[in-house]
Simulated assay, not measured.
Amino acid sequence: MDFPEKVLLIDDDEEEHFIFTVALKECCPSIKLICEKNAGSALARMANYDASSTPNMIILDWRMPHISGKEVLIRIRKLPQYAKIPVVIFTGIFEPLYFEEAKELGATFFLRKPFDFLELCRKLAYLFTLDWRDPKSPGQQI
Rank of each mutant, 00 (worst) to 15 (best):
K6L: 14
L24V: 03
E119V: 06
K25V: 02
K37V: 02
V72A: 04
F94Q: 10
K78Y: 08
P55L: 02
Q141I: 15
R45M: 13
E14F: 09
P114V: 13
A107H: 09
P80K: 12
G139K: 09
W132L: 03
Q140E: 15
I89P: 03
A102T: 04
R75C: 10
R112G: 05
F109T: 08
E14K: 08
L97A: 13
I58G: 01
I85R: 01
K25G: 04
F90A: 05
L8I: 08
I58V: 14
Y98N: 15
I34S: 01
I85F: 14
I34A: 06
K6R: 15
A39K: 01
H17C: 07
P138W: 07
T129M: 06
K103H: 07
P29W: 11
E101H: 13
K123H: 14
I19H: 00
D61V: 00
L124T: 02
A125G: 13
I89C: 05
N56R: 05
Y49W: 13
P65T: 14
F128R: 01
N48G: 07
R75A: 15
E15P: 00
K25T: 10
S30W: 06
A107R: 05
F18S: 05
F117L: 03
G69A: 14
A47M: 11
K37G: 09
Y98P: 00
L43N: 07
V22K: 02
I59Q: 03
T108R: 03
V88K: 00
C27D: 02
S52I: 05
T108P: 00
I74E: 15
L118K: 10
E5K: 14
K6Y: 14
R45K: 12
A23E: 04
H66L: 11
S41Q: 15
P86K: 09
I19R: 00
L105W: 09
K6H: 15
E15H: 03
M46S: 06
E95G: 06
M57V: 07
R45L: 05
L33N: 06
L127Y: 07
V87F: 03
T21C: 06
V22I: 13
L120M: 12
R112Y: 08
L33A: 14
R122G: 13
A39Q: 01
E14Q: 10
E95V: 11
R133V: 06
I59G: 00
L127E: 02
L124P: 03
P114F: 12
S30E: 15
P4C: 09
G139L: 12
E26N: 10
D2T: 13
Y98H: 15
I74D: 13
L9D: 04
R63C: 07
P96K: 11
Y98Q: 03
A107Y: 06
A51C: 10
M64F: 04
H17L: 07
M46N: 11
M1V: 15
P80A: 08
N38C: 09
K25L: 04
D2K: 07
I93F: 08
